[in-house]
Amino acid sequence: MQTIHWRVEATSAPAAVRPCDACGAEARFESTGRFRVNAQKKRLDVWLIYRCAACGSVWNCAVIGRRRSESVGRERLVRFMDNDPDLALECALDAGLLKRNGARRGPVSFAVEGELPGGEDCRVEIEAEGLAGIRLAEVLKLALSRSELERLVEARDVACVDGSDVLKAKLRPHWTVVVRARS
């Protein structure tokens, strides 16, 4: 059986959805990709800065609060201070971080790198770091229509190796899906 590798990556930072104090309603906040770093004595605070898409007001999403700078690590601290775009994206994708700050992650735009299954049975190894919460079916729909995917799952031509329901399962960092050749 042939093995195909797919890498799923976010193409941009998703919006954070939360109440906007200025708008007076729930709003989409876009990440600026910039951090605010503040140190008092030996304690450190770091926020990822967001702007309301409707009114432009600023919201600071707490990434690190009142921690000793040594516990953050020098390399990571430099990345915060340099507004590292990969670190900003990693923080914006962290649904747990947003939840702790009273927000939820909006839809994630993503791209899949890898070849499509051909005319023989294959295993599709899917790597998707940091994209928890996206449905596996959304990734598979890039190669198939929703109705075709449903038909193939029902016929057991597309299945998760661990027995999870392909149509309901959420992405994990590593997935394996078996795709049987269509006759």
Rank of each mutant, 00 (worst) to 15 (best):
R151K: 07
P85N: 09
G114L: 09
D84L: 01
P85A: 07
T3S: 15
I64Q: 06
E129Y: 05
R43T: 13
E75N: 15
R28E: 12
V46S: 06
R18V: 09
R28V: 00
C122F: 06
D82H: 05
G96A: 14
A155L: 09
E30T: 03
C61M: 15
A54T: 08
G65L: 04
R104H: 11
A10H: 03
E129V: 04
A16C: 09
V58Y: 02
A27F: 03
L77R: 10
V58A: 11
R74T: 12
R100A: 05
R151S: 14
K141M: 13
I64K: 12
C23G: 03
R34Y: 08
E115S: 08
R79G: 00
S31F: 02
S12M: 08
R172S: 02
G130L: 06
R66V: 02
C52H: 00
A137T: 05
C55E: 01
T3M: 09
C122Y: 14
R76S: 12
D121H: 15
P107F: 13
I49Y: 00
R76W: 07
V58F: 05
S109N: 03
M81G: 06
R34Q: 13
N38V: 06
V179P: 01
A95H: 04
D121R: 10
A25E: 02
W47E: 14
G130T: 11
H5M: 02
T3D: 11
G33S: 01
L167D: 02
L89R: 04
R156T: 03
S31I: 06
H174I: 01
C91K: 02
V72A: 11
L136W: 12
V179K: 03
G163P: 00
S109A: 11
D45H: 05
D21K: 08
N60A: 10
W47P: 01
R18E: 12
L48G: 01
D21A: 13
W59A: 11
A181Q: 05
L89T: 00
F110R: 02
A159M: 13
C122E: 12
A169I: 00
K41E: 10
A103I: 11
R18Q: 13
A54F: 03
L136F: 13
D45R: 11
L89W: 02
K170C: 06
Q2W: 01
L144Q: 12
C20A: 06
S69F: 11
A25H: 02
G73F: 11
A22D: 08
W175N: 02
R123F: 15
W59G: 03
H5Y: 09
R123E: 15
R68K: 13
N60K: 00
G73Y: 06
D157C: 08
E148A: 13
C20V: 09
R76Q: 13
V72E: 04
V37F: 09
E127V: 10
E9N: 15
A143V: 09
L44E: 03
N60M: 06
